[in-house]
């Protein structure tokens, strides 16, 4: 019985310690003194994290936009409201699907890669070697990745939304024959830039920070064995996706919930 309480207590302490370490890592690497060499590292990471995620983002955006238009059309046409298709597609994408799906794909594509890379660095003792020669791995390795994730996910979400709206246009207007003027017109009269677009971007900034934070922390904090790397990579994707979905509900309630 006492051992049982002890195990609960130990786990709680472990979780709290991990939260504390991760917050420490986040603050140290986000607000380290910026240097010019850091910009070069950041650009490299923007390429790895952002540009190389483009293919999966583009392809899934196109298909999500197309399937959204197809499903939406089949229901709306029953009510003779197929003119509202543009509104449906644009609002769903800008408010929810764009930031969330881009963040989920990002957690799978870029987050896991970050964790595995940092984890392998730790397992092969590259991080300790850096410390030995007086280079702070938080600034050299973690900080550029965090900033790259924070900046590139909003950009990816914007591209996602644009491509998906175009995919909806292809299916809705070109294939199913919704009038092109009402597709764009209904969209324009219902989407408010300050409300929908900006809130979507704020969401994806939050998601970008959280997903890369989890990825970086899992990589930095893992048990340096091959099994540890594989478990940390899995945890990055699982925790990252759950955090995105949970935070999405909270953010939506804050942004759109109160009328």
């Amino acid at each position: 019985m006492i051992a049982w309480f002890g195990s609960i207590g130990r786990r709680t302490l472990d979780v709290l310690a991990a939260v504390g370490r991760s917050a420490f890592i986040l603050l140290r690497s986000l607000f380290g003194v910026p240097r010019w060499s850091g910009v070069r590292l950041w650009i490299t990471q923007m390429h790895v994290v952002g540009v190389l995620s483009l293919p999966i983002i583009l392809v899934s955006a196109l298909f999500i936009g197309m399937v959204l238009a197809l499903q939406g059309y089949m229901i709306l046409v029953d009510y003779g409201a197929d003119a509202a298709l543009g509104q449906l597609v644009a609002l769903a994408l800008l408010r929810e699907l764009g930031p969330v799906v881009a963040a989920l794909l990002f957690a799978g594509r870029a987050g896991s890669a970050i964790t595995a890379e940092i984890g392998l660095m730790k397992a092969t003792e590259q991080l300790s070697s850096m410390e030995m020669i007086g280079v702070d791995p938080l600034k050299r390795v973690l900080s550029p990745r965090l900033w790259a994730g924070l900046v590139s996910l909003p950009l990816l979400s914007i591209i996602f939304a644009v491509v998906a709206i175009y995919g909806g246009y292809i299916v809705g207007v070109e294939w199913l024959g919704v009038f092109s003027g009402s597709y764009w017109g209904n969209m324009q009269s219902s989407v408010q830039f300050g409300h929908d677009v900006v809130n979507g971007i704020i969401k994806s900034v939050v998601f970008g920070l959280v997903v890369t934070w989890i990825a970086v922390f899992q990589g930095y904090d893992l048990v340096p064995t091959s099994e540890g790397i594989s478990r940390a990579t899995t945890r990055t994707v699982v925790y990252g996706s759950l955090a995105v979905l949970g935070l999405d509900f909270v953010l939506t309630a804050l942004m759109f919930g109160g009328a």
Partner: peptide, 28 residues
Amino acid sequence: TRGLEVGVGLFVVVAFLGLVFLGLKVSG
């Protein structure tokens, strides 16, 4: 690195063009 920089630059520019598209064409 030059190639990387061009790639990242294109990525950022395309994303900002997308933002302009969202502003003008989608939100009107």
